[in-house]
Protein backbone atom coordinates (compact mmCIF):
# COMPACT_ATOMS: atom_id res chain seq x y z
CA UNK A 1 0.00 0.00 0.00
CA UNK A 2 2.79 2.36 0.99
CA UNK A 3 4.74 1.51 -2.18
CA UNK A 4 1.68 2.29 -4.29
CA UNK A 5 1.22 5.63 -2.59
CA UNK A 6 4.86 6.44 -3.31
CA UNK A 7 4.32 5.54 -7.00
CA UNK A 8 1.29 7.84 -7.19
CA UNK A 9 3.13 10.73 -5.50
CA UNK A 10 6.22 10.36 -7.72
CA UNK A 11 4.14 10.17 -10.90
CA UNK A 12 2.03 13.20 -9.95
CA UNK A 13 5.17 15.17 -9.01
CA UNK A 14 6.82 14.27 -12.32
CA UNK A 15 3.70 15.28 -14.23
CA UNK A 16 3.63 18.64 -12.45
CA UNK A 17 7.33 19.26 -13.12
CA UNK A 18 6.99 18.46 -16.82
CA UNK A 19 3.92 20.67 -17.13
CA UNK A 20 5.34 23.67 -15.26
CA UNK A 21 9.15 23.76 -15.45
CA UNK A 22 10.36 26.74 -17.53
CA UNK A 23 12.16 25.82 -20.73
CA UNK A 24 14.58 28.45 -22.05
CA UNK A 25 14.32 29.09 -25.76
CA UNK A 26 17.06 30.88 -27.63
CA UNK A 27 16.55 31.75 -31.26
CA UNK A 28 17.21 34.72 -33.48
CA UNK A 29 13.90 36.54 -33.93
CA UNK A 30 12.58 36.95 -37.47
CA UNK A 31 9.88 39.06 -39.02
CA UNK A 32 7.06 37.33 -40.89
CA UNK A 33 4.95 39.18 -43.45
CA UNK A 34 1.74 37.23 -43.94
CA UNK A 35 -1.30 37.94 -46.10
CA UNK A 36 -4.32 36.47 -44.40
CA UNK A 37 -7.52 36.38 -46.39
CA UNK A 38 -10.87 35.60 -44.84
CA UNK A 39 -14.02 34.28 -46.43
CA UNK A 40 -16.97 32.34 -45.11
CA UNK A 41 -16.01 30.23 -43.08
CA UNK A 42 -12.25 29.98 -43.26
CA UNK A 43 -9.00 31.86 -43.22
CA UNK A 44 -6.40 31.40 -45.92
CA UNK A 45 -3.88 30.24 -44.84
CA UNK A 46 -5.74 28.47 -42.05
CA UNK A 47 -2.59 27.84 -40.06
CA UNK A 48 0.29 30.22 -39.38
CA UNK A 49 3.57 28.94 -37.97
CA UNK A 50 6.17 31.24 -36.42
CA UNK A 51 8.76 30.99 -33.65
CA UNK A 52 8.69 32.47 -30.22
CA UNK A 53 10.02 36.02 -30.28
CA UNK A 54 9.29 36.54 -33.98
CA UNK A 55 7.53 39.67 -35.16
CA UNK A 56 4.35 38.88 -37.06
CA UNK A 57 2.91 41.36 -39.55
CA UNK A 58 -0.43 40.28 -40.98
CA UNK A 59 -2.17 42.00 -43.86
CA UNK A 60 -5.74 40.99 -43.17
CA UNK A 61 -8.31 41.03 -45.99
CA UNK A 62 -11.86 39.82 -46.56
CA UNK A 63 -13.14 38.36 -49.83
CA UNK A 64 -16.89 38.24 -49.33
CA UNK A 65 -18.38 39.97 -46.28
CA UNK A 66 -17.03 41.78 -43.24
CA UNK A 67 -14.92 39.44 -41.12
CA UNK A 68 -13.15 39.77 -37.82
CA UNK A 69 -9.88 38.53 -36.36
CA UNK A 70 -9.68 37.74 -32.65
CA UNK A 71 -6.44 36.09 -31.56
CA UNK A 72 -6.79 34.02 -28.40
CA UNK A 73 -4.04 34.38 -25.84
CA UNK A 74 -2.90 37.69 -27.32
CA UNK A 75 -6.25 39.51 -27.08
CA UNK A 76 -5.79 41.14 -30.48
CA UNK A 77 -9.02 41.99 -32.25
CA UNK A 78 -9.81 43.76 -35.49
CA UNK A 79 -12.24 43.64 -38.40
CA UNK A 80 -12.00 44.28 -42.10
CA UNK A 81 -14.43 45.14 -44.89
CA UNK A 82 -14.11 43.52 -48.34
CA UNK A 83 -11.69 45.40 -50.55
CA UNK A 84 -9.72 46.87 -47.65
CA UNK A 85 -6.59 45.65 -45.91
CA UNK A 86 -6.05 45.85 -42.17
CA UNK A 87 -2.51 45.50 -40.84
CA UNK A 88 -1.99 43.59 -37.59
CA UNK A 89 1.45 43.60 -35.96
CA UNK A 90 2.59 41.83 -32.82
CA UNK A 91 5.49 39.92 -31.28
CA UNK A 92 4.73 36.23 -30.84
CA UNK A 93 6.11 36.03 -27.32
CA UNK A 94 3.95 33.17 -26.03
CA UNK A 95 4.56 29.62 -27.24
CA UNK A 96 1.79 27.20 -28.13
CA UNK A 97 -1.22 26.99 -30.40
CA UNK A 98 -3.58 29.94 -30.43
CA UNK A 99 -6.82 29.99 -32.37
CA UNK A 100 -7.96 33.09 -34.18
CA UNK A 101 -11.66 33.46 -34.75
CA UNK A 102 -14.00 35.64 -36.69
CA UNK A 103 -15.40 38.24 -34.30
CA UNK A 104 -18.05 39.67 -36.65
CA UNK A 105 -21.20 37.62 -37.23
CA UNK A 106 -20.74 36.56 -40.83
CA UNK A 107 -23.25 33.73 -41.34
CA UNK A 108 -24.55 30.49 -39.95
CA UNK A 109 -21.16 28.83 -39.35
CA UNK A 110 -19.61 32.02 -37.96
CA UNK A 111 -18.82 30.64 -34.47
CA UNK A 112 -16.74 27.93 -36.14
CA UNK A 113 -14.71 30.19 -38.45
CA UNK A 114 -11.34 29.43 -36.94
CA UNK A 115 -7.66 29.64 -37.86
CA UNK A 116 -4.56 28.63 -35.96
CA UNK A 117 -1.35 30.41 -35.01
CA UNK A 118 1.34 28.00 -33.84
CA UNK A 119 4.19 29.69 -32.02
CA UNK A 120 7.02 27.21 -31.91
CA UNK A 121 8.45 25.41 -30.23
CA UNK A 122 4.96 24.27 -29.24
CA UNK A 123 5.99 23.51 -25.69
CA UNK A 124 2.36 23.32 -24.51
CA UNK A 125 1.81 20.33 -26.78
CA UNK A 126 5.12 18.69 -25.88
CA UNK A 127 4.52 19.18 -22.17
CA UNK A 128 1.00 17.79 -22.48
CA UNK A 129 2.22 14.75 -24.41
CA UNK A 130 5.06 14.12 -21.94
CA UNK A 131 2.71 14.52 -18.98
CA UNK A 132 0.35 12.02 -20.53
CA UNK A 133 3.13 9.50 -21.23
CA UNK A 134 4.42 9.78 -17.64
CA UNK A 135 0.85 9.25 -16.44
CA UNK A 136 0.46 6.15 -18.62
CA UNK A 137 3.79 4.71 -17.45
CA UNK A 138 2.90 5.49 -13.85
CA UNK A 139 -0.52 3.86 -14.17
CA UNK A 140 0.99 0.72 -15.69
CA UNK A 141 3.62 0.53 -12.91
CA UNK A 142 0.83 1.03 -10.39
CA UNK A 143 -1.21 -1.78 -11.95
CA UNK A 144 1.84 -4.06 -12.13
CA UNK A 145 2.31 -3.52 -8.40
CA UNK A 146 -0.81 -5.64 -7.81
CA UNK A 147 1.32 -8.69 -8.68
CA UNK A 148 1.01 -11.41 -6.09
CA UNK A 149 -2.26 -10.12 -4.67
CA UNK A 150 -5.45 -12.11 -4.79
CA UNK A 151 -6.85 -11.98 -8.26
CA UNK A 152 -10.48 -11.11 -8.98
Amino acid sequence: MKARLIIVVIVLALMMVVMLVPIPYLSKPRTHHITLDSQRYEYDPGRLEVHQGDTVIIDFTASDVVHGFYLEGYGIETRVEPGLTKRIEFVADKPGKFRFRCSVTCGSMHPFMIGELVVGPNTTLYRAAATMLIGIAGTLIYLWSFKGEQHE
Binding site: Q39, Y41, E42, Y43, D44, G46, R47, R99, S108, M109, F112, M113, I114, G115, E116
Partner: peptide, 12 residues
Protein backbone atom coordinates in the same frame (compact mmCIF):
# COMPACT_ATOMS: atom_id res chain seq x y z
CA UNK B 1 -12.93 23.47 -33.99
CA UNK B 2 -10.33 22.87 -36.71
CA UNK B 3 -9.00 25.36 -39.29
CA UNK B 4 -10.24 23.42 -42.33
CA UNK B 5 -12.88 25.50 -44.08
CA UNK B 6 -13.65 22.82 -46.66
CA UNK B 7 -14.76 20.45 -43.89
CA UNK B 8 -17.16 23.06 -42.57
CA UNK B 9 -18.49 23.63 -46.10
CA UNK B 10 -19.05 19.92 -46.63
CA UNK B 11 -20.62 19.42 -43.19
CA UNK B 12 -22.96 22.37 -43.59
Amino acid sequence: LGPWGWMKDWAS
